[in-house]
Amino acid sequence: MKDDIVLQDMKDIYGRNIEWDQFRDKTVLVTGPNGMLASYVMYLLIFLNEEKHFNIHVIAMARSAERFVARFGECGNARYITLVTDPIHGPIHIDGEVDYIIHAASLASPQYYDVCPVDVLSPNVIGTYYLLRLAAKKKAKGFLMFSTGDVYGALRGVEYVTEKDMGIVDPLDIHSCYSESKRMAETMCRSFMHQFGVPVRMLRIWHTYAPTMDIDKDPRVFASFMKNIVNGQDIEIKSDGTGKRTFCYAADAIAGLFTVLTKGKDGEAYNVCNTDQFVSVRQLAEMLAALRQDVEIKVAWKQRPADEHYTENTAIGAIAPSNEKLKGLGWEPKYSILEGFRRVLEYQMQR
């Protein structure tokens, strides 16, 4: 791993108040390792092995070996990494022990909801089921599932979205393929804990961003804005810009992930978000435009094409999530929007 933004983030995460020794000489299985956040999980496990000599056996379950090699380069060929390209929508066979499972495989981008909803829900429902069966068989010490703030649905009458709140999701809305399948995944996790004693914990992840995000293919607003900034183009907003989001930098999110895995309570879900960084889309655009000092970037409005795939979650758009439950485990976010996206810009400009 080169001495760049990612390595700096790994050092930052390792310096947090987390009981890292739990992972020494253990086997950790990660699904969806090519994804934005899951890749940071992989980089952290690589860091623990290369820099701290933890002797972790990493099993990476990825659909594409080519993408895995492109993402991790020489690090992906390390002797302690086993790459498995078998699908997770059937029985999973892994030789030897599996101590921890981090299930991150998912098609989380709204661009897929209208196009291939079955592909969206499959890893969340079928994949979660077979991974939980594997965890039960292997008597895993921990099972962590990447869930989403979308599970809350449409909420009214609350100041902050806590883990005890739950709104309405229409199961017949095609966009619900993601949120409803994540709800089912959480129910399965709790059921496997109740019936088979699997030590499950769930992360309800809100808007997060990382230096390694794919700004060319990710249609979410923050990725699109960053693409404009990197290319020195004006930022285009395809809404009225009033919808609000929380934005959490990857280093904070991954620190939260490992905090839950090491200190969380079995069967519980935790919001992973930076409540203090709750801004409108327009505010975000203006803040990011100011990051480039060498070119003038303006914020403009443009009508959204009728055929453009887009979904709006009312809970995310109107009410800030609470991170008090995660803070109760000793976690604290460190990065503001400006600090985090400045790191993203520096990384992207070096590509």
Rank of each mutant, 00 (worst) to 15 (best):
L44K: 05
I59H: 03
D12K: 05
V84A: 10
V281W: 06
F143R: 02
Y249V: 09
K182P: 01
R16I: 05
F222Q: 02
I56Q: 01
M202Q: 01
S224V: 12
T262I: 11
V161M: 08
M213V: 09
A154K: 14
Q283A: 14
R183T: 10
Q8R: 13
Y160H: 11
R24N: 03
C189Y: 03
R67K: 15
A136T: 04
Y310D: 05
G232V: 11
R16G: 07
H53Y: 14
T31P: 00
S147L: 06
Y43M: 05
A78C: 07
E19T: 13
I56N: 01
I168H: 13
Y130V: 10
Y112W: 15
Y335A: 04
S336L: 08
K139A: 13
D12V: 09
Q111E: 12
M226A: 05
K11M: 07
L203G: 02
S39V: 07
G153K: 04
G232L: 09
R201D: 01
L37R: 00
Y249N: 08
F54M: 12
Y270H: 05
G90Q: 14
E66N: 14
H57V: 07
W301D: 10
G73A: 10
G167Y: 07
I337F: 02
S224H: 11
Q303K: 15
A38W: 04
F146R: 00
M213R: 03
A60G: 06
A135H: 05
N228W: 03
T262K: 09
R133W: 05
D3K: 13
V151Y: 00
D240S: 06
D21V: 14
W331S: 03
T259C: 11
A251E: 00
Y160P: 00
G142V: 10
H309G: 04
T162G: 08
Y129S: 05
D12E: 11
R63V: 09
Y43E: 10
E312F: 15
T262H: 11
K137L: 12
Q233S: 12
A60N: 07
P91N: 09
N231M: 14
V221F: 15
Y347T: 08
M42R: 03
C189E: 06
W206A: 07
N34L: 07
Y335C: 04
T187W: 07
V151I: 15
F196G: 00
A289Y: 07
P199H: 11
C116L: 11
D214T: 13
M184A: 15
Q277T: 09
C177T: 12
F222C: 06
E51N: 11
I205G: 00
S39Q: 01
R79D: 10
K263P: 00
V198D: 00
Y40T: 13
R133F: 04
I168G: 03
I168N: 11
R71D: 06
E180P: 00
I237Q: 01
L291C: 06
Y129L: 12
K244T: 08
D3S: 14
V30W: 01
V58K: 03
G90H: 14
C189G: 15
I5W: 02
T311W: 10
V125T: 15
G256V: 12
S64Y: 10
P321F: 06
K325M: 13
K244P: 01
M42P: 00
M193H: 02
M202K: 01
I254T: 09
C177V: 08
M349L: 15
I174D: 03
L121V: 08
A62D: 04
R156S: 13
